[in-house]
Simulated assay, not measured.
Amino acid sequence: MVYRQFSRSVLFKLGGGDPEVAHEQVLRGLGRLGAVPPAVDALARVFGPRTPRTVFGVRFPGAVGLGAGADKDGTALRAWRGLGFGFVEVGTVTRHPQPGNPKPRLRRLVESGAIVNRMGFNNAGADALAATLTRQGPPGVPLGVSIGKSKVTPVEDAVEDYRYSLRALHRFADYFAINVSSPNTPGLRGLQDKEQLGELVGELRREVEALAGELPPTPLLVKIAPDLTDAAVSDVLQVCADHSVAGLIATNTTLGRDGLAPADREVGLAEAGGLSGRPLAERARQVVSFVTAQTGGELPVIGVGGITDADSAARMFDAGASLVQLYTGFIYGGPPLVRAVNRVADSR
């Protein structure tokens, strides 16, 4: 409550109220925090997890991770552990640097606990992220790298685009998230179709095996949209089984606008882009539950979407999630939310 009433109100006023500018300012501040290891250690003792777990061969100090998009270019990489996160996912990163879609492209829907974004994979590119990770060193928790298709790359050339980023970042990643589900890059969601996804995942699987040599290959995860039908999710699961995919991330943002508060409905309907936050919670849980049922719990799932308090986190774990990620919920709930979700995870 203190965070909501005081800290959040101050943070939301940064950048003159522009949410993207505010986000960038917060990242820079967290970057400075990360340069002071004793401060990070002290915060981690307050907000951090207590119960580690091993999922798809990776040992996580806690089950709550920072979702992709929050720190695309690794600006604040070493600070996130101090805020309670047990793993961090950077990106989505693309082969080519790109500015993303025209601004403004980020809108808070405060009454709904939601955000609409049409960022368009704005990032400095795979080579720049590799340089940043080299300079900063390990973040102290497992690192996931979300990779996507560059906007300038035709869909028919997507495989090589993903493969380039995987090669550039392989030595840093504890796992790779194959993002084929953002609604803000033209043609990207078509890569979720069974044939195209099979080709992409198969090639990336061969690549990580070649790069690993005699070591276990880096786990590959697929991130899917909440807007897929059950039949389409089943097709994705078949591809995952065919190519030894290590896990699924469910879900990305939605093009739907169900669940908006009345005060946000007009603005939400007018804004193009993907919706995240509390209105996505039920659909994200449904997808996680469906995947768990279809695979008998054999395919680990990272649940993401609408986790805004301990209760919504508990329901996501109950649906079958092995790990969870926060992004929009963290913007509204701050480190106290991370601590609350960690306590839920520690109790399971």
Rank of each mutant, 00 (worst) to 15 (best):
K103I: 01
G296Q: 06
T153Y: 04
N252P: 14
V110E: 15
R4W: 10
V245P: 14
D346V: 04
R107K: 03
P216F: 01
G91P: 13
D127A: 15
S234R: 13
G334R: 06
L129M: 08
E209W: 02
R315P: 01
A212I: 10
T54G: 01
D193S: 12
G74C: 09
H170Q: 10
G15M: 02
L133D: 05
A210L: 09
F56W: 10
L326P: 07
V338G: 13
R348Q: 05
P139S: 04
H96N: 08
A212Q: 07
N179F: 07
R171D: 14
M1Y: 04
R95C: 05
V64R: 13
G120K: 10
F47D: 08
P186F: 00
T292L: 09
I147G: 02
G297N: 10
G125F: 09
S234E: 15
Q294T: 08
R343D: 15
L269V: 12
I178F: 08
G305C: 10
G333M: 00
E214N: 13
N117C: 02
N184S: 13
P226R: 00
G333E: 02
L228K: 08
P138M: 00
G69S: 09
V93D: 07
D264T: 12
N101A: 08
G306H: 07
L77T: 09
A168S: 13
Q136E: 15
G329A: 06
V58T: 15
L143N: 12
A168L: 07
P99L: 06
V21I: 15
Y3M: 02
P49Q: 04
S289E: 15
P38D: 12
G137A: 03
L188P: 14
D235C: 01
R78C: 09
P183G: 08
A281Q: 11
G15K: 11
A44D: 11
A246V: 09
R53T: 13
A42H: 02
G148C: 03
G187T: 06
R343I: 12
R205N: 14
G31A: 12
P262V: 06
S244R: 15
V58E: 01
E207W: 05
H170R: 12
N101E: 10
Q325G: 10
A261C: 01
A345R: 11
R4L: 14
G213P: 05
L326G: 04
A319L: 08
I115H: 00
P99T: 04
Y332S: 03
R59A: 08
V21E: 14
S112D: 07
V55R: 13
N122G: 06
F317H: 03
